[in-house]
């Protein structure tokens, strides 16, 4: 799947630099923001209606009446199983993705969906699809993130 994403600080709007200290990381001296589902309150960067936002990643803490996961299978979405949540398509910007400790390049971002819980709070789920043979060997996982204009 995709347990974490990283976005280089240069690609994050300046206005959002503050308040992100807890996810700042230096990869060989190059600053980036890391978004991991392992965090207690995981969040993801999202581009929605032209805006760059940072929103809760799925429903890990079971605080909302939403699927208790951080991912949504493309097949389920297409089958209408998420229709009751009226999901909106979003782009999750990222430079790198990580699964089982293996970081891989993300060229244009990952597809995601944005849904609202009962209180109107927005949550984002990362879309996944069956892994290609290449990804499966590389990351040892049968599912991979739904990458935009990219095939691993």
């Amino acid at each position: 799947m995709c347990q974490a994403l990283a976005l280089q600080l240069d690609d994050v709007p300046d206005i959002l630099h503050n308040g992100q200290r807890h996810r700042r990381y230096q990869r060989e001296g190059i600053p980036e923001l890391r978004f991991s589902f392992d965090n207690r309150n995981p969040e993801l960067p999202v581009i929605y209606e032209g805006q760059f936002l940072i929103l809760p990643w799925g429903n890990k803490q079971r605080r909302a009446r939403l699927p208790v996961t951080g991912w949504c299978a493309v097949e389920q979405l297409e089958a209408g199983q998420w229709q009751w949540l009226r999901p909106d398509a979003v782009t999750i910007p990222a430079n790198f993705g990580c699964e089982k400790g293996r970081w891989f390049l993300i060229e244009a971002g990952v597809r995601g969906i944005l849904v609202q819980d009962d209180s109107g709070t927005e949550h984002v789920y990362l879309l996944t699809e069956p892994a290609t043979h290449y990804y499966e060997i590389m990351c040892r996982h049968s599912r991979m993130p739904a990458l935009i204009d990219q095939r691993i």
Binding site: E28, N95, L105, E107, H133, M138
Partner: peptide, 21 residues
């Protein structure tokens, strides 16, 4: 790869074989 993906510059980077292994 760094020519078309600037984000890789300065980072430890490996290109994987045909099978990704």
């Amino acid at each position: 790869e760094r020519v078309r993906h600037r984000c890789l510059r300065g980072l430890p980077c490996g290109v994987l074989s045909n099978q990704g292994a």
